[in-house]
Computed example of a mutant assay.
Amino acid sequence: MITGAAAVAGIAGDPIAHSLSPVMHNAWLAAAGMDGAYVPFRPRDPARFEALVAAGRAGLLLGLNVTAPFKEQAFGLADSSTDRARRVGSANILVFEDGRVHADSADGEGLLIALTDQAPKLTLRDSLVVVLGAGGAARAAVGSLVDAGAEVRLLNRSRDRAEALSAELGDRVSVAEDEAVVRDAALIINALSIQPAIDLDHLSAGAVVMDMTYRPVETAFLKAARARGLTTVDGLAMLVGQAAPSFEALFRRPPPPLDLRPLLLAHLEGVGG
């Protein structure tokens, strides 16, 4: 039940209609019997996003998840931030309290949770991980992988962009010379929005393949990896993984036990994936 005293949080992005976050968070709120709501917001420009944050400062919202194109602006508007948000220079969580804004980033944590869930035999410490791409998705992934002790190689069409990201993220991150680097990789992560042109025959039999997108949940990249008998990790597991720490930050309590995956798969089927 929602009353006038409801705890309200939400997600801000443009576009936002495709987001599964309201499905997840409102399911948790219902399961917990909480007087609350999680609402999608679509600011059409940076000025309107800043106005939304101002509403949070004024006490109208508990907090926000933030998605493209506002993650870097969200970080810049915060009064304080976690180490992981500072490392990537962006935030997907803003918490409002006593007129102040605190920024965090749970994208990397979601990735690690997904790997633990769907590739439990994988060991990241001292393992080679190849990340395909050098954009915002790659940035969040690399920070968490380095924290877990992995050696990361970036493979990107634009070498300059990969080198810039590598320089920012420390000496455990470097730029791959060519596709041959995947031969020694324990994990390959597609952080691109397109199907990567990687020959999966180069991968070792024990390699894990992950795709950060979840539309569709089983991408062509993952299908090809599975056909080779490789362990795969999908973007839906990562989405659910980052949602739990988001819920706890926004609503000040952990989410109740609830298997969200069947609910999300049914929702994706209903809207055409």
Rank of each mutant, 00 (worst) to 15 (best):
D184V: 04
L154E: 02
M210Q: 12
P196A: 01
T232E: 09
L200M: 10
A205P: 10
A191R: 02
L128Y: 00
N190E: 03
R172C: 10
R139E: 05
L187Y: 04
A141Y: 08
V131I: 07
P196S: 03
R153Q: 15
L203H: 02
A162Q: 08
I189V: 15
T232R: 08
A106P: 12
V175S: 05
L155D: 00
L165H: 07
E218H: 11
A205I: 09
L154C: 04
S127P: 02
T213R: 15
R215L: 13
A205W: 02
Q195D: 15
M210P: 02
A141S: 14
V217I: 15
E163R: 15
R161C: 04
D234F: 05
L169Q: 15
L192G: 00
A207V: 10
G133Y: 01
I189A: 05
G110V: 11
V217N: 13
A119T: 07
L122C: 14
R228Q: 13
A141T: 07
G136R: 00
L187K: 03
A141E: 02
V131Y: 06
A207K: 06
A119P: 14
G235V: 09
R183N: 05
D117N: 13
R183A: 15
V182D: 04
V233L: 06
L239T: 12
R183G: 06
G143M: 01
A134T: 07
D171K: 09
R157I: 02
E168S: 14
G206A: 14
Q195W: 03
G149M: 09
V217D: 06
V146I: 12
A191D: 01
I198P: 00
L124F: 11
V130R: 01
A167F: 07
S127E: 13
G206Y: 10
R159G: 08
G136I: 06
D211E: 11
L132I: 06
L132K: 03
A119I: 11
R139V: 11
A176N: 06
A191K: 03
L122P: 14
T116H: 14
S174A: 15
A176M: 11
E218L: 08
E168W: 10
R161G: 11
L128P: 00
L111G: 08
A205M: 05
K121C: 12
D201F: 08
A186D: 03
R153M: 13
G110M: 11
Q195F: 05
D184M: 03
